[in-house]
Design a protein around this nucleic acid. Structure first.
Length: 316
DNA sequence: AAACCGTGGGA
DNA sequence: TTCCCAAGGTT
């Protein structure tokens, strides 16, 4: 959960998750949709599916005992070098280094490293330094302290060097280069995208589909959604009826534009026009699986954030 | 190597 | 409002 996600954001999710899945066995036995439902809103949903899969690997390949070798931990789905190092050092006291957002910044500044810490050469240097710094004992505490130093004191913008315990060792502080080290990561160009969502009603039900493996929000459920050629004004309800017919084979009677949502995801800034329509006839031929769900059933299905917002509009 | 994957908090 | 960034991993 903590991968690329701030601690304060994770805490309520962690509490709920661990209550529902108190151990590896419980998680391994869960339905993926239930795991995703508890993850809903955290983002990077691949992490949830990999964690679920990792629990199953532990049950099946490690007899339910969490592996303790570096190789076996690293081989778990979703566990890279950082996560393996964190687990091994914090949970098992193994002498393994870590390198993540906070410590990357701390170590870059201690080394006065002007290169890009994300590139291979920077990674190599910083991992090596993280290894060299490791104490003989209390490695887990040391690793956590280094992260905490980066988070609370050696912050990105205006680090609190006045209270930093290692300020006298820090050339970046000495030369006042805190705003240049580490090198800022270049931002990918933002792309504006227009999309339309349609809530097709059929009696007490609405049409949802599960997003496929290769799509964004894989495994989550969503209302049928279409890319729109960049438009100044939202399409008319009649145009939307044509779109959904072309995409699904369903004939509908368009009713109204429900709302317009703006949503940023990765490098895309999506303007989402949300329509409502009534089912007339036809059998949907959207790529499976799809489902006609009663409005009150949607709470049990994992939805994207925009999907959840729309579901609540439909609910009222 | 570089793109991709999500969302929300804070400046 | 906009921008940066977060206890990264995979392809």
């Amino acid at each position: 959960m903590l991968q690329q996600t701030q601690v304060a954001t994770v805490i309520p999710y962690f509490e709920r998750f661990i209550k529902r899945f108190p151990d590896v066995s419980a998680l391994a036995a869960a339905e993926e949709a239930d795991v995703l439902r508890l993850w809903e809103g955290l983002g990077y949903y691949r992490r949830a599916r990999q964690l679920h899969k990792a629990a199953q690997v532990i049950m099946e390949q490690h007899s339910g005992d969490f592996p303790q070798s570096r190789e076996a931990v690293h081989a778990l789905p979703g566990v890279g070098r950082y996560t393996a190092g964190a687990i091994l050092s914090i949970a098992f006291g193994t002498r393994e280094p870590i390198l993540e957002a906070n410590t990357k910044r701390v170590l870059s500044r201690l080394l006065l490293y002007r290169g890009d810490p994300e590139k291979a050469s920077g990674q190599q240097l910083l991992w090596r330094f993280a290894e060299d710094l490791l104490p003989r004992k209390n490695v887990g505490t040391f690793n956590q302290a280094l992260m905490e130093l980066g988070s609370e004191i050696c912050s990105p913008r205006t680090p609190a060097c006045q209270v930093c315990p290692v300020a006298t060792l820090c050339p970046t502080h000495k030369y006042g280069l805190q705003d240049q080290i580490p090198a800022r990561k270049r931002k990918p160009g933002v792309e504006n995208v227009d999309e339309a969502v349609i809530v097709v009603r059929r009696g007490p039900c609405v049409l949802l589909r599960q997003r496929s493996e290769k799509e964004r929000w894989a495994g989550l459920w969503d209302f049928p959604r279409f890319p729109l050629a960049n438009c100044e004004a939202p399409p008319t309800c009649e145009q939307m009826a044509e779109l959904i017919c072309a995409a699904t084979g369903l004939e509908t009677t368009p009713t109204r534009l429900l709302t317009t949502l703006k949503h940023g995801v990765t490098r895309f800034r999506i303007t989402l026009y949300c329509y409502e329509a009534n089912y007339q006839n036809g059998v949907d031929r959207i790529i499976q699986p799809t489902a006609w769900l009663r409005v009150d059933e949607m709470k049990n299905f994992p939805l994207s954030v925009t999907g959840r917002k729309i579901s609540q509009l439909v609910n009222t």
